[in-house]
């Protein structure tokens, strides 16, 4: 099948080494600095606050939004995280999840809105999202390291790439699903496109958008182990140690902690979704 030679490897390396890094390294460094301070700030807040305070806040939030059952589960889960001595690691993972979710939402929702209202943008964005979701994670870990070094920052970037698609897709879907006659009525009464978006489309799309945010959080959490491979601290590195030492117990302990975080976060965000409905 090799009718002609296609040196993609050389081209890419040439592009990255001779153009991308020299030209844009300053730009990436700046992003890196901003993100690092963001990640550090969130991590600091979470790790320096007494565990009990965070646990109580989280349980109260779970109770208020999703009811007693979820609150009880959160209580048991928090006790577990403490008793296996993984509280700090959990908070480090949570920090990366929070930061990458915030970035995903800040970028994903506006892009979703644009692609719902503009078919050119929609056609451009969709293949990019497909690419992001299907490209093996490890492939973009390499440039992430190259551009952002090791640690929390490339982890946030890689997590963002993996977790942003549902935010975009569900926002777009939610807006497209707003009934045509409602949009038509709003236009008939003289709404500007902006009024239509703010007063009609976004409020009606909110449950779907929240479902997208929920998925983003879940995907971000599922990246914890991969993120630890490029030096992000947290529960992922516990699992990674378990793997490298063939330590089943350690792997399970860390893995269960991730599951606990996932379930608590999922139930709380689902509760929010149900509330806005």
């Amino acid at each position: 099948m090799n009718y002609f030679e296609f040196p993609l490897e050389d081209i890419t390396n040439d592009f990255v080494n001779n153009w991308l890094l020299p030209t844009l390294s300053g730009f990436f460094d700046q992003i890196s600095v901003i993100l690092r301070s963001f990640v550090d700030a969130v991590t600091n807040v979470l790790t320096s606050t007494p565990a009990e305070v965070i646990a109580i806040l989280l349980i109260a939030l779970a109770w208020w939004i999703s009811g007693k059952g979820v609150a009880l589960f959160a209580l048991i889960g928090m006790l577990y995280l403490g008793s296996v001595d993984l509280w700090t690691e959990s908070m480090q993972t949570l920090a990366i999840v929070i930061v990458s979710t915030i970035i995903s939402v800040l970028i994903g929702i506006p892009v979703g809105i644009l692609s719902a209202t503009n078919s050119v943008i929609d056609k451009t964005v969709r293949p990019i999202l497909d690419f992001m979701q299907t490209l093996p994670i490890f492939v973009y870990l390499i440039p992430a390291i190259l551009l952002f070094g090791l640690g929390g920052v490339p982890a946030v970037i890689a997590t963002f790439v993996f977790a942003v698609p549902p935010a975009v897709r569900m926002t777009s879907l939610g807006i497209k699903q707003v009934p045509g006659e409602v949009v038509e009525a709003s236009r008939a009464y003289g709404s500007t496109p902006r009024q239509l978006l703010i007063k009609v489309q976004l409020p009606l799309a909110l449950p779907t958008i929240m479902a997208g945010v929920n998925q983003t959080i879940m995907l971000a959490l599922s990246m914890a182990v991969v993120a630890s491979m490029i030096g992000a601290p947290g529960l992922g590195s516990i699992v990674l140690t378990g793997i490298s030492q063939v330590n089943v117990g350690l792997g399970l302990t860390g893995g269960l902690a991730i599951v606990v975080l996932a379930i608590v976060l999922d139930r709380i965000t689902q509760g929010i979704t149900n509330k806005v409905k």
């Binding site: 006659e181 409602v182 009525a185 709003s186 009464y189 007063k199 009609v200 009606l204």
Partner: peptide
């Protein structure tokens, strides 16, 4: 121009 629709077109929220 005010318009009235067959399917009402009311804002459900």
């Amino acid at each position: 121009l005010a318009m009235v629709f067959q399917k009402f077109g009311l804002l459900p929220h």
